[in-house]
Amino acid sequence: MSQKEWPLWEVFIRSKQGLDHKHVGSLHAADAEMAIQNARDVYTRRLEGVSIWVVESKHVHASNPDDAAAFYEPANDKIYRHPTFYQVPDSIKHM
């Protein structure tokens, strides 16, 4: 491959006002402006979006799946963080 490929970008789309941007896929573009336009042409052909974020894929840092146990399992026994952990007398409303 003599020629360099256009960089890869991750695309995030807000599908309507009030919602978070959500990852929808990736694409190639030479620069950020083009990445946004390409995202518009590729990922919003059917009214899927009102706002676009693009991030060059190489800038995304991800957690390691091998750390999953250390990262996420310690939350398992902290059930007192959830409202259902607490008993509220029936006569108390709106809590």
Partner: peptide, 11 residues
Amino acid sequence: PILEQDLAMAN
């Protein structure tokens, strides 16, 4: 010249 621009021109 590249898929992304194929889509742009069709749009």
